[in-house]
Simulated scan of single mutants.
Amino acid sequence: MPIKIPIFNNKQQRKDSFYDSEGTIPGHIAIIMDGNGRWAEKRSMPRIYGHKEGVSALTKIVEAAVKCKVKMLTLYAFSTENWKRPKSEIDYILRLPKEFLHIYLPDLISNNVRISTIGDMKDLPASTSEAVQYAMDRTRDNDGLQLNIALNYGSRHEIVGAIKNILTDINNSALSLDELDEQKFSGYLYTEGLPEPDLLIRTGGEKRLSNFLLWQLAYTEFWFTDILWPDFSQEEFFRAMEEYQRRQRRYGGI
């Protein structure tokens, strides 16, 4: 039976309900934060201003996820395809993790948030990878919300890498072909040991996955919105969770 959704008379009632909810809160939410550049262009501003405003939206959503007791939040911050963008925009985007963590790391620590990453970190600037590693070290003992930042992440790259490592292990007799199944394969991905997302949110009006978690999203519920990421509010975050609660997840069954 679908969970009955209460009717809220105002935004505060919706917010309070989810903060104290006994309903089905998705344990793992993945977000494609799309629309930063278009947000800036609509205002005749350089695209980097959209990315700056996107950080403000990010802090609000992390706050809401903590208060709703979401266990895991995975954010698509920089893809393997994003290297095709102008160098000035790439440089700015890759400075944002350091700036974000410099300002907000104390709050994340006090809210028991644990920082983690998925992606190929070796190709990132040293200042970016060092800032992220520092945050991971400082928060590794926290057991509240796990905040996964997807940096230089591409799902096809991830899957090809997994296959190469599997073949290496088979050739070295560390793995037999008979042992290989879906669970074993998952252990070769960046997301080894992580639960698959329950809910995917994509902002910005596009309805595609853009090479994000292709293996892991097999049975995830999708929620799309035309709202550009800098305008994505806690209210919209709660709206996505309301829709999630209305759905029945059958996993191929009846």
Rank of each mutant, 00 (worst) to 15 (best):
F8R: 14
N9E: 11
R14Y: 04
D16Q: 11
S17F: 10
S17D: 07
E22V: 09
E22P: 07
T24Y: 01
T24E: 03
P26W: 00
P26D: 04
H28R: 05
A40W: 00
S44I: 06
M45A: 10
G50V: 12
T59N: 05
A64W: 14
K67Q: 12
K71Y: 13
M72E: 10
T74C: 14
T74K: 14
T74Q: 09
T74S: 10
A77I: 06
S79P: 07
T80E: 10
W83T: 08
E89G: 02
Y92C: 11
L94V: 04
K98W: 14
E99F: 15
F100E: 07
L105M: 03
L105R: 01
P106R: 06
P106H: 13
I109H: 01
N111G: 08
I115V: 06
S116T: 09
I118S: 02
I118E: 00
M121D: 03
D123W: 00
D123S: 00
L124M: 09
L124K: 07
T128A: 05
S129V: 04
E130Q: 14
V132T: 04
V132F: 00
Q133H: 14
Y134C: 07
R140C: 12
D141E: 12
D143I: 12
L151R: 02
H157M: 15
I159E: 15
V160K: 13
I166G: 01
T168S: 12
N172I: 11
A174G: 10
L177Y: 08
L177Q: 02
D178L: 05
E179I: 10
L180T: 04
E182K: 04
F185A: 02
G187T: 01
Y188W: 04
T191S: 03
E192A: 13
E196V: 05
L200G: 12
L200N: 13
I201R: 02
L209I: 11
N211F: 03
L213G: 10
L214Q: 04
W215N: 13
L217P: 06
Y219Q: 13
D226M: 05
D226G: 04
D231N: 05
F232T: 00
E236L: 06
E236K: 10
A240W: 00
M241K: 01
E242V: 09
E243G: 07
Y244K: 01
R249Y: 00
R249N: 01
